[in-house]
């Protein structure tokens, strides 16, 4: 007997909650869990402390330089964001699914009337909410310090930096969730997340430099290779926002300014959004095919 014929003959009335309802329920649960987690609190404190330190030192050293001082502070904050936010997002995402699988919680959750897509999206949204809270708190506190120090802060710049930081966090969270969907054990997932962080923060730059020297990469390829790294895309976009230029990046920056100019923000945005969407979709596909145990 075909499955359809069977369904018609024996169908029992079944009501399952809608997708949005389930995603929001799971997201809320994940958000509360993340905000309670000790590791997340430590990351938040580290981000806050480093951000406040940069703001304080920068404001103190610039005195009444006003907006230029704020620009210097923003540049300092970009480096803090580049270091802390990807690590926080990658390790948080990496623990999301693998940890639940290892503890047997995933099995019980998936035995309920929820789909795997809902579980991934719920976890992603909840963790994204926690990251947004952390970034907003950190950068908000920095703005406050700058304002109290008498520096003329421009809220729009800070808001823009917060927005870019959130995009970076979301892209790294997607990668983390993908790693988590692939890994069987939480420790392997988090270890892989940290390795990726090292690769993106440190090894990627060195790799591009080595590749440029060894293979005599043309400047266009150099720029495009740099653009493929979400951290570099964030950095270039942030610098471009402060200065309306990325000349500071050298020949690749000059080439990009000359060649793409107005299209550059779109290219940076496409890179970051691509890093959000593609790994997340892959995570959904991988998670749908893998056993929850």
């Amino acid at each position: 007997m075909s499955a359809t014929a069977l369904e018609t003959r024996e169908a029992v009335e079944a009501h399952a909650p809608g997708m949005i309802s389930n995603v929001l329920t799971l997201a809320w649960r994940e958000l509360r869990d993340a905000l309670r987690a000790r590791s997340f609190l430590l990351y938040s404190l580290a981000f806050l402390a480093l951000g406040l330190g940069v703001s304080y030192v920068s404001a103190a050293s610039t005195g009444s330089l006003g907006l230029s001082g704020f620009g210097r502070t923003t540049a300092g904050l970009i480096n803090i964001v580049l270091l802390v936010v990807p690590l926080m997002a990658l390790s948080t995402g990496a623990g999301a699914i693998a940890g639940d699988r290892e503890r047997g919680m995933l099995l019980f959750l998936l035995a309920q009337p929820v789909s795997r897509l809902e579980v991934v999206l719920g976890k992603y949204l909840g963790l994204a909410g926690a990251l947004v809270a952390c970034i907003t708190l950190g950068l908000g506190a920095c703005s406050l310090v700058l304002a109290l120090q008498g520096g003329a802060t421009e809220p729009r710049t800070m808001l823009w930096l917060a927005g870019l930081s959130i995009l970076l966090a979301l892209s790294m969270l997607s990668v983390g969730v993908l790693v988590s969907a692939l890994a069987r054990r939480a420790s392997v997932a988090v270890g892989t997340g940290v390795f990726l962080w090292l690769a993106l923060v440190f090894v990627s730059d060195l790799g591009i430099m080595a590749g440029t020297l060894a293979m005599r990469l043309p400047v266009k390829s150099l720029f495009l290779a740099t653009l493929c790294n979400p951290l570099q895309a964030f950095k270039m976009w942030a610098l471009h926002s402060i200065d309306a230029s990325i000349d500071v990046l050298g020949p690749a920056g000059l080439y990009a300014m000359d060649t793409y100019h107005d299209a550059l923000p779109w290219m940076f945005g496409a890179s970051l959004i691509g890093w959000i969407v593609v790994p997340l979709l892959l995570a959904v596909v991988v998670f749908s095919k893998r056993s929850p145990v």
Binding site: A3, L6, E7, E10, V12, A14, A16, M105, A111, P113
Partner: peptide
Amino acid sequence: SVGGRDIARDGKRARSLIGYVPQELAF
């Protein structure tokens, strides 16, 4: 099929008809 619903194609609604108790509650 559970309650006439194919678990592979309509798993969410099929599972809404099931109350599951595992060997040990892990949550």
